[in-house]
Amino acid sequence: MPLALDPLDAAHLLTAFGTLGVFLVLFAETGLNPLAGMVRVPARTFALWQGAGGVVEALRSRRARTAAEPTVGSAE
């Protein structure tokens, strides 16, 4: 069963992943862009992988949201 966490619910994120986990996610989102520039990743390659990662993340979050929604006729 996939994790269905609300990314805006800080208490849930801290409980599930701890302080270090939240820090690592924030670093991955904000720290990799300057790092890619420093190691001279070509702009086209960087943009391609950023786009691919965005599509994968969008599909994952959509799948997690639909898995967390109650189905029609369920007990909830």
Rank of each mutant, 00 (worst) to 15 (best):
L24K: 09
L24Y: 08
V55T: 10
V39D: 03
G73W: 06
W49G: 05
F23N: 15
T45W: 02
R62P: 12
T66L: 15
G51L: 11
E76M: 08
P7W: 15
E76W: 04
L24E: 05
A52M: 13
A43P: 04
L20A: 15
A28V: 08
L5S: 12
R60A: 15
G18F: 14
W49V: 04
V72H: 00
E76S: 06
S74A: 01
R65H: 06
A43E: 03
D6N: 04
V72S: 01
G21V: 10
T19Y: 13
R60F: 15
L48N: 02
T15S: 14
W49P: 00
A67I: 05
L32T: 10
L59N: 07
P42I: 02
P34C: 06
T66Y: 03
E29A: 13
T66C: 11
G51W: 00
A16N: 07
W49T: 07
A10F: 05
L20K: 14
G37F: 04
L48S: 05
S74Y: 00
F27R: 10
S61K: 06
L59D: 06
L59Q: 09
M38I: 11
N33E: 11
L20Y: 06
G31P: 01
P34L: 06
V41E: 00
G53I: 00
V22C: 14
A11S: 11
H12F: 07
E69G: 09
P42K: 02
A67G: 08
E69D: 13
V39P: 01
G18D: 12
F27V: 15
R40W: 04
M38Q: 04
G54Q: 00
R65I: 02
N33I: 07
A58K: 02
G21I: 00
V56S: 10
L35G: 11
E29H: 01
V56A: 13
M38C: 05
V56H: 08
G53L: 01
G37Q: 04
V22M: 13
A11L: 08
G21Q: 03
T19H: 15
F46R: 01
R40T: 06
L3K: 14
A68C: 11
P70D: 05
A67D: 06
V72T: 09
D6H: 13
A52D: 09
G73R: 00
G53N: 05
P7T: 05
T15G: 12
V56M: 13
A47D: 10
F23W: 01
G54C: 04
P7F: 07
A58H: 04
L48C: 00
E29D: 11
R63D: 01
G54L: 01
V56Y: 02
L13T: 06
V25A: 14
A43D: 05
A64N: 06
T45L: 13
T45C: 05
A52Y: 05
G51R: 02
L8Y: 13
V22S: 08
T30P: 00
V41C: 08
R62Q: 09
L26D: 12
T45D: 08
R63L: 10
F27A: 13
L5D: 12
A68I: 02
W49Q: 07
A4S: 14
T15V: 08
T15E: 15
W49S: 00
S61P: 00
A28F: 07
M38Y: 06
H12S: 15
E57A: 09
L59S: 07
F46Q: 07
R60W: 14
S61I: 11
